[in-house]
């Protein structure tokens, strides 16, 4: 019988060290080679985060950012088989652990959400849209939207600004629509007012513009001819951008 622990324990020690850096002695393992593995793995993870979150990373001091990535990788068991999905785990981990406060970056989760959404919408599996026609009434026909989109709400306008001081001054309710153009696959961003975000959400649920406008006073919004015109103008523009695909037949 061998006096060594079984292979499973050796593997656990080896992997645990690579994730956390906790000292470990495994027979036959050279220190510098172990360090090579740890370095290579961390470099890969950090690199993945920096490609996914270029704005976030550029706006956080290098040492702090390094600490965040190390913290994540050491304490979170990554479950994605696909490396490109790893940044989602980072974002989720940051939210679950309240990093906005912990690292004193109040807009961190907004910024991560925004940068992740671009990757997600760009890569998301194809979703077939519902049948639609090009003729109908903007007011009375339910619209068919491009299903490849995300509507995000933020406390800070991270889609317009990345500088801390400015972001902190503009805390509020911000909305961004990201959608994927059907032919090119490019992701488009559109900043939305709270009203247009509400309209978009309702349209996606199959509600007509007329019914949305009728509901508006309950939100404390006064319906004027201008609001009506602006709403339809927005939809016409979004049709040009292939977010509104057409009218339900």
């Amino acid at each position: 019988m061998s006096s060594l622990p079984d292979s499973r324990q050796l593997q656990q020690r080896f992997a645990q060290h690579l994730r956390t850096g906790v000292n470990t002695a495994i027979p036959g393992v050279a220190k510098d080679r172990l360090a090579h593995y740890r370095h290579a793995i961390f470099h890969m993870v950090k690199d993945t985060m920096e490609s996914a979150y270029p704005v976030t990373c550029a706006n956080i001091p290098a040492r702090k950012w390094d600490r965040m990535v190390r913290n994540f990788f050491a304490h979170h068991a990554c479950t994605s088989h696909q490396v490109w999905k790893l940044p989602l785990e980072f974002y989720t981990y940051a939210v679950e652990n309240n990093w906005d406060e912990g690292y004193d970056i109040p807009y961190l989760s907004d910024l991560l959400a925004f940068e992740w959404a671009e990757i997600e919408v760009f890569n998301m599996e194809d979703v077939a849209p519902a049948a639609f026609t090009s003729t109908g009434s903007w007011m009375e026909t339910p619209l068919v939207l491009n299903p490849e989109y995300r509507l995000l709400s933020f406390k800070y306008p991270v889609h317009r600004e990345a500088r801390r001081a400015r972001l902190l001054k503009e805390q509020g309710a911000w909305f961004v629509l990201l959608h994927r153009e059907p032919v090119s696959g490019h992701v488009q961003f559109t900043g939305l007012s709270p009203w247009l975000a509400f309209v978009t959400e309702q349209l996606a649920a199959g509600i007509t513009v007329k019914d949305i406008l009728e509901y508006a006073p309950q939100l404390g919004i006064t319906v004027t001819a201008e609001l009506e015109n602006d709403t339809v103008a927005f939809l016409v523009d979004m049709q040009r951008q292939q977010f509104v695909l057409g009218f339900q037949p």
Binding site: S7, R8, Q11, M44
Partner: peptide
């Protein structure tokens, strides 16, 4: 090789212990 341990992926190909229990497993 293995690239996952304790249900955590490490995204690298780690060396197996060249041992009979590991080979059988």
């Amino acid at each position: 090789s293995y690239s996952k341990c304790d249900n955590a992926h490490l995204y690298d190909l780690l060396p197996m212990p060249f041992r009979m229990d590991a080979a059988r497993h």
